[in-house]
Design a protein around this nucleic acid. Structure first.
Lengths: 208, 208
DNA sequence: TTTACCCGACCGAGCGGTCGGACGGTCTCA
DNA sequence: TGAGACCGTCCGACCGCTCGGTCGGGTAAA
């Protein structure tokens, strides 16, 4: 591929035109970036097409409507993070499984930062059907943590004086809000933060 | 107050007209409810005025612009929660102070549920100046927790192998996300949840 | 007469989405 | 091998609609 006679400008991203069509990945990434920083409703299709370097009308050869973008962002980011957590879950022994899942979750969420934050903050703007579909995937993801926690309770690895439901919700709180303040340029590494949060969740804030 | 000659219909909320002007509290509450469920941008001033039982034009005798509502919601909810946490902080000895602050925070956030959730989710849609002002108040609130955690570290009550910054962020994650799933009709009481989360944060998820 | 509150009608701007057509590789078939 | 149909992609102009906000009053208690 790419045996064009003169491949001209490509470095200056949004200058498209002759060659260089928009890929689905570019589309979702650009949309997620705008949706995260400005919100879904506050982002116009004109802005998005400008960011991509195409006309607004051209956008509609890739999507049926603006909502398609938000829906795809949600399903793609959830598929990524589910796969990552499932892999960690399968690879780690029960004793260290939760910590491995925390690592995997934070890592996946922060790699797809724009998409994942958009999913969390904006999925409520989807139509009722699609909202339900996304909610179901989120529940599936939460269920992975809950299963592990329940299993840990059975084996005496996790306290059972607190219902598994609230142990799970507490962990998800801990994980989900992180994406809204994490800044890769100002914070410690994802791995370090995952270790801190895993330590706090598993062992508490009191001295060891 | 309320010595009107004929106070007529009041139970059927949005039937206003003769007597019964809109109070500032009603305004903010109605706006917060819509903003939380639909989002700030997705809520029109027409919808809001309908919910209040007045004409859209009448709305502008109470506010200068739609953004005023969002800004007031942010400042009011932050003032409430700060006051609640500061009182708890002043009343409790250091050993039980964090737990008392957690109780106070969750209680205040869930009493002002619509306003607080709107503040967290939508303050980014404010103008830059006002956004900075709100951010400053949020930082002041976070600083209350951070101070207590740092003091606890000094007295050997809180582990110091994790930086106070991340101990604080972890606690705020735990608290802030709760408002997005809490449903007073389906969950346990706020007090119980605050105890669960305080236990997990302070002592961890492993068996006692 | 003032004041606080409310109203119906209206405005310009920006929105999501559509239209008919231009462009340029690629495949088909004589 | 070359003419021509095809198709994915992109485009400028346009549409109907809803948005936040404004205007010049009306009404009734103080």
């Amino acid at each position: 591929m790419n045996n064009l006679p003169a491949s001209d400008s490509e470095a200056t991203a949004p200058t498209r035109g002759r060659a260089g069509q928009v890929t689905r990945e570019e589309l979702l990434e650009a949309a997620a970036k705008l949706f995260r920083t400005q919100g879904y409703n506050a982002t116009s299709t004109r802005e998005l097409s400008e960011a991509l370097g195409i006309q607004k009308a051209s956008l509609y050869h890739h999507i049926r409507g603006k909502e398609d973008l938000l829906f795809s962002i949600c399903t793609v980011s959830l598929a990524h993070i589910q796969e990552a957590v499932e892999q960690a879950m399968a690879a780690a022994p029960l004793e260290s499984r939760l910590q491995a899942m925390i690592d995997a979750h934070l890592d996946a969420a922060l790699v797809d930062r724009d998409m994942h934050a958009t999913m969390l903050a904006e999925f409520g703007k989807l139509s009722a059907d699609r909202q339900a579909e996304v909610r179901q995937e989120r529940d599936r993801h939460a269920a992975l943590f809950r299963m592990t926690i329940t299993e840990g309770q059975g084996k005496g690895l996790i306290r059972d004086d607190i219902p598994a439901r609230y142990l799970t919700l507490a962990l998800l709180n801990l994980l989900n809000w992180t994406i809204f303040w994490f800044d890769p340029n100002r914070e410690r590494s994802v791995r370090e933060i995952a270790n801190f949060f895993g330590d706090i969740y598993l062992d508490g804030a009191r001295p060891r």
